[in-house]
């Protein structure tokens, strides 16, 4: 497959985000079996680990990519790269807005109907609102990278 430096970079970011944060969210959903205080500590540890791992993986793989494509890395993004980046960002932003609006709606709804919170015992995950926001953010990142790759594959 003939890929530009920026497309390869988008693939790396997509894979690392999906794998690392996919595992993170999978682990978070397992926390509902634990006592609340213990689950909070585990969730905090999982989040820190996912972020640190994500940064390390990005640095290593992008470093390797830049080392093997020295000239392309120095040149940076051309106008087509920037266009696809812009379109991908638009796509990701839309997902993020939906996630934020959903979270706001959930907070307001539960504020006026606290009894619903007690009934929704199927998802007793600590810091659930933070996790929903985090999920929206990660989903928007995935949409951003996937959008860029889609335009690169389409060619225009």
């Amino acid at each position: 497959m003939d890929m530009s430096f920026k497309e390869k970079s988008a693939w790396i970011s997509l894979f690392s985000t999906v794998l690392i944060f996919g595992y993170y969210f999978y682990s978070v959903f397992q926390l509902s079996d634990l006592p609340v205080e213990q689950a909070k500590e585990v969730a905090k540890g999982l989040l820190i680990r996912a972020i640190v791992l994500s940064v390390i993986v990005e640095i290593i793989f992008h470093g390797m990519l830049a080392a093997t494509n020295h000239k392309a890395a120095e040149m940076g993004a051309d106008e087509r790269d920037k266009l696809f980046e812009y379109r991908g960002n638009n796509f990701g932003y839309s997902i993020l807005v939906i996630g934020v609006l959903f979270t706001l709606g959930r907070i307001i709804t539960l504020e006026y109907n606290p009894q619903w919170n007690e009934h929704s015992s199927s998802l007793q995950i600590p810091l659930l609102t933070a996790h929903i926001l985090m999920f929206s953010f990660i989903l928007s990142e995935v949409a951003r990278f996937a959008g860029q790759i889609y335009y690169y594959r389409r060619g225009y």
């Binding site: 530009s4 051309d78 106008e79 060619g155 225009y156």
Partner: peptide, 22 residues
């Protein structure tokens, strides 16, 4: 020109409309 080889390829194939500058 100051673009990537893939951009030249896309222009040649008529898939991408370059800016006036390019």
């Amino acid at each position: 020109v100051g673009v990537t080889r893939q951009t030249i390829m896309a222009i040649e194939k008529g898939k991408y409309s370059p800016s006036l500058e390019v």
